[in-house]
């Protein structure tokens, strides 16, 4: 299945944000966008069971000057076994214009046994724009005893701030080659990985983030080369990851002097 979601979020004359343009087709679907705490919340829904081999999805979110967008998903993203060996592909691009704010917060990715998945993420953030980007990679269907049984994840992420490349990540995780998993399993045998980029000219809330450390969490944060911060965490299980994610959102939103939309799960 080949699907796309292209949307442009603009600031209206009354100060609210709204979708000025939207175009999508299956397996993308949008629930009705709504205002929450000063931002437009857009839930991206996949009405199918998840992603299958050969699927190609293209997501483009453009946030115009002064607009505030929270792009999220209501449930975990599942990638199913690839019968053909070809990957399910997702390309996602977020472009934040000067003076805009965007939070990108998908629920965890759950790659199931035999899944092959390729994800390419490009984040372009103008000077004086603010970005909160999260990604959460689970080890699989843990409750079913299916842990790190996917075949391959290929991950590519670039973050540009004011046109300059400040973060680049390229991962290929193949559980059949245990060395590619060592950085996860050497810390916690069923580790969840949480990654975050925070871009803002405001001071980073180091003390508040440091206070989130605790049992089952291995957390680090660091300033990027030119604008923004990277936060990474390995967590022992999903509940710990969820708690940490909630705490991070609260701390990072507070530093932005905004209130985080509730989203029904924090």
């Amino acid at each position: 299945m080949k699907g796309h979601l292209h949307l442009t979020c603009a600031r209206l004359a009354n100060g609210e944000s709204a979708l000025r343009e939207q175009s999508f087709c299956a397996p993308f679907h949008l629930s009705k966008p709504h205002q929450d705490r000063g931002a437009l919340v857009v839930n991206v829904v996949n009405p199918t069971a998840g992603l299958f081999d050969g699927d190609e999805l293209d997501l483009l979110a453009q946030v115009e000057c002064g607009a505030r967008l929270v792009l999220t998903t209501p449930s975990a993203g599942r990638v199913y076994q690839s019968r053909s060996g070809t990957p399910a592909r997702l390309q996602q691009r977020v472009q934040a214009a000067a003076g805009s704010f965007v939070e990108f917060l998908p629920e965890p990715l759950i790659p199931q046994a035999g899944a092959v998945y390729a994800q390419q993420t490009t984040l372009d953030v103008a000077a004086e724009a603010e970005l909160l980007f999260f990604e959460w990679l689970s080890p699989g269907r843990v409750a079913s005893g299916e842990v790190f049984q996917y075949r391959q994840l290929a991950w590519q992420t670039d973050l540009r701030v004011d046109g300059r490349l400040v973060a680049r990540e390229r991962y290929r995780v193949e559980p059949e080659q245990p060395a590619t998993l060592a950085a996860l399993t050497d810390c916690f045998p069923q580790a969840h990985y949480l990654g975050c980029f925070w871009v803002s000219a405001r001071p980073f809330p180091e003390a508040a983030v440091a206070a989130l450390q605790g049992p089952g969490i291995y957390l680090g944060w660091s300033q990027l080369a030119a604008g923004g911060w990277s936060l990474k965490a390995l967590c022992a299980d999903a509940l710990t990851t969820r708690r940490l994610l909630g705490g991070l959102r609260a701390a990072l939103y507070a530093a932005l002097e905004r209130h985080p939309p509730w989203l029904g799960r924090f």
């Binding site: 991950w155 590519q156 990540e169 390229r170 991962y171 290929r172 995780v173 590619t180 060592a182 950085a183 996860l184 050497d186 810390c187 990985y193 990654g195 291995y218 957390l219 680090g220 944060w221 660091s222 990277s230 990474k232 965490a233 390995l234």
Partner: peptide, 16 residues
Amino acid sequence: EAVGWFNPLLEIASMR
């Protein structure tokens, strides 16, 4: 296009 390695553990260690 194939260059890259997944090591959040070492990255977090360096950050800490």
